[in-house]
Amino acid sequence: MDALEAALDMIWPRRLARYSGWAMIAPAILLVGILVLGLVQIAEGSLHTLDRSTFLPSEEYTLANYQTIIDSTTYWRVLWRSLLGAGLTVFFTLLLALPYSYIMVRTSSATIRKSLLVVLFLPFFIGQVVRAYGILIVLGTSGAVNDVLGLFGVEPLRLLFNFPAVVFGLVQYMLPFSVLLLAPALTAIPRETETAASSLGANWLQSFWHVVIPMAKPGLVGAGLVVGTLSLTDFAMPAMLGGGSQDFIANAIYDQFFRTADQGLGAALALLLVALGSVIAGVVIAIFGAGTLGMGGRK
């Protein structure tokens, strides 16, 4: 034991003890550092335009790529679509996740709780792309949904390859995440609080609206933030369910990096996306306070 302690002393002398905390978070700092380094490189790249006679980035620094984005109606449209898509996804996901997690947390039946959990976790083992393919099959012109509609004499409908289909795919993809983020927040609300509300004269709906939702706010904000940023930056759902005409920012970035080989423009778009996501997260945290997210800030 003494030998062990002596050895430990050699590696990490006692006088360094007050730096132990820093040592613990060093790996995290390192990871964030790599991320920042990448961002710096992307920022540097975004300041060079592509010379199409040599396909090399220009020597001089310029803001031309940003100018291109600002002048382009396409990018504004794609940006707006991403924001709208993310917003709608947050709205519908929370709308569905709230009752789902509420029932899962509150049900007295172990069978119902287990079934809800299984249904929730099953999609986790199926990747996003496979799930999108599932949607392609189910909602396709000759898919299950149109088969059922056909029974009622409805001509096959084009359910895919439009904006609602992308939002549908995103909601389907995000639902498990938001349920997982909401469930602990709902568990933290004592059952007694709801009983109290009902004894004070609130019917079920009033108790849900005036008590459960305000008390679940940390979970709702956290889930909304995660779902919002993941949707805003999503690539696969717009690519697969949008039929090519419903690009989000990530698809536009992909095109610049991998289709036109214009890495400068791609970098500028990527940086724009990072900035947009950060601003939104910052505004949400500023409005609701870090404390709402359980990060210990003062209210």
């Binding site: 592509l50 382009s72 396409t74 794609v78 090519g244 419903q246 690009d247 095109d255 289709r259 036109t260």
Partner: peptide, 13 residues
């Protein structure tokens, strides 16, 4: 190509 591509996207998006 990049310009054609951008133009095509602009119309299609």
């Amino acid at each position: 190509e990049s310009d054609w591509f951008a133009r095509f996207k602009e119309i299609m998006q």
